[in-house]
Amino acid sequence: MTPNPNLHDSLHDLASEATMTNLLPQVHRTSRTLHRRRTVVRLTVAAAIAVAAITAGPLLLPDRGPSTTPAGPSTSPPTSPPTSPDLIGSDGYGRLKLGMTLAQAIATGELGDTISDQVSCVEATLLDFPDAQVWIDKERGVAVIGIVTGMETTEGIGPDSTVAEARAAYPDYQQTYNTQMTVPRGGDPAAQLKIEHPRNATADTKIDGLSLSTVDQACLN
């Protein structure tokens, strides 16, 4: 029978091969060496500065000329009124929809810079959110849209939501890994919301990554 362990278990199994040894003596030895090296570097730098100061004489003395005053009174930045977050639906962001071809995606005007152009996928940003990354499969179209601060799902979940809020908003979530929940979003192509969270998260823990993707996306596999 072919073993069918997941990568997590296999890595843990492989790591268990490592032999445990007491490293304390070596750690202290290495630490002393590093400390000595650091002291030598510091002394050398200090000596170099001292020599430079003597050689350069008054040039290195602090400038006692009239101090420059900051130009004009400091202006506090105008407080912008709180804006409502941009919504990301179950099929895409704004005019950009999952499954759109690269040409269609570009034509929406929602894309910003191209980060990389790989063999099968193009990685770009959203024009309005340069931190949000979008992956577009050259054959299958828009595959993944990252959701960053300032964006929110139509159910009110954003990168600052807690795990409990996400679970309440999406009771049909599946815990697909111990750091990830997946929410089926239906549609054509079938979409899903990926919600990452730290391991051992409690209800109050903030989620740590959010993206909308097609179920069969191949850009990030």
Binding site: H8, T179, Q180, E196, H197, P198, D208, G209
Partner: peptide, 9 residues
Amino acid sequence: YFEDMTEAE
């Protein structure tokens, strides 16, 4: 997959 960190971590 071993330390089970999220992408952000």
